[in-house]
Design a protein around this nucleic acid. Sequence first.
DNA 1: CGCCGGTTTGAAGAATTTCAAAGGGAGTGG
DNA 2: CCACTCCCTTTGAAATTCTTCAAACCGGCG
Lengths: 260, 260
Amino acid sequence: MTAGALPSPAGEERPMSEHIRKSLLPLVRRLSASGRLTAEDIKAVETMPVTIREMTPGQDLMRQGDRPSQSCLIIEGISYRYKIIGEGSRQILSYHISGDVPDLQSLFLDVMDHTLTTMTTSKVAFIPHRYLHHILQAQPNLARLLWRDTLIDGSISREWLCNIGRRQAFPRVAHLICELYARYEAVGLTDHMTISFAMTQGNIGDAMGLSVVHVNRVFRELRQAKLVEVSGRKLKILDWAGLQEAADFNPEYLHLANAA
Amino acid sequence: MTAGALPSPAGEERPMSEHIRKSLLPLVRRLSASGRLTAEDIKAVETMPVTIREMTPGQDLMRQGDRPSQSCLIIEGISYRYKIIGEGSRQILSYHISGDVPDLQSLFLDVMDHTLTTMTTSKVAFIPHRYLHHILQAQPNLARLLWRDTLIDGSISREWLCNIGRRQAFPRVAHLICELYARYEAVGLTDHMTISFAMTQGNIGDAMGLSVVHVNRVFRELRQAKLVEVSGRKLKILDWAGLQEAADFNPEYLHLANAA
DNA sequence: CGCCGGTTTGAAGAATTTCAAAGGGAGTGG
DNA sequence: CCACTCCCTTTGAAATTCTTCAAACCGGCG
């Protein structure tokens, strides 16, 4: 419990499982970043009847065409959403990290219009829609925060639209890196300007509308410009100001309450 | 009052102004397309304390950086959202037609991350956030439908991402035309495969991430392929199946309850 | 009539993709 | 522990799509 702003859950509570309570912490933290949570709100989140599953890389959490009866919360690891376009090409729509509920939309949109897949080994909590509907009704405050979360998701999509539609490959990839770093930072997953970086270059190509080859060339440029350094599954930002500048990055669209 | 599915508002009601009630009809119709509205819901919408304004083309309804205290409903005409990218270039994020509430998000995201502008002469209703918050609390059913609406907005953004990221200019523009036609149809604004079409080619370029010149060439191809015909401010689809095919268009992402 | 914004066309240039192939690193089975 | 495989990265070169530049055209409007 490091984050100062986080209201501490009542110590004497006896939740069904301490393990589950801990697993749901990223969501509590996420929601309390955009608004005050009452003790009841926190309890409602922490006692959700979730199913927690460990997933291997490349497992589908939800498929295009599905009519899911639960939503999933990413506890650990990275997932991404994508659609298949025409023959063999693919568009990645978003990346999701700890605390994200990528398919909350399925609460109100019956059929999935895309697929959600793990990129890394992950821990995921599945939350029944029934319970979410119950929460929405019983805790209007939580409902607002969850709604807000889906709106931020939309805001990020719009920024991607700008990125892909109007920026050239170099700033485009730089922008993605900035976004990932900022989001990692918001959930406390950065370490000395370094984030874990599981994407392959092909994956980034599918997200940014570029070919693998070109992504590779952009990374070479980023390296040569001494902006970032990739080694193993880590990415280190060597010059944050320079990267932001090159990317034309302004974090406002992330709507992080506690903007750095 | 043509749509059969529309619950008829109580005839003996005495709303503050028949003119306002009529103006809010597109929203009632839109919401009742995705779920049943109770008589109370309808009343809550029809009696919203709105300000209705006639707008000329090119007027900003909301600007990037604003902290609006109201949202707007498009009653008539077309508006679009955009962001300025770097020097002089622009990305259009979405088009909005009768019944849309393009900036509902501003209810929960304090500062606008883009600008909303009229493209044509329009009639717009401004709805105070205060009243919307009140409705959300008093009519959970309406809240759900409005939330759903913002989720569809997100779904459309994601499809645009695919369109711009992974489709070439020709199918890309074709896809946009299909989407516009499908959405116009959903609100009853089509007429013998024809829709009013106010976009300039430059405007479409800004939406699809293309240059004016290239958009022009795509339109020439569309014309030569006998798929569409543009004259004046009208666009006529000559071969709907062919256009859909060329565009790789599947209307599922629009989540129209009554899919044709 | 002349202007203005939008459309149209040609031609040259740039960004990016595709094709092809080599190099690297991590895990697996022998 | 080595060899082998698989997947990812990297590089070169040709091909393509799209942009930019430049200029003509067109239709409506003051």
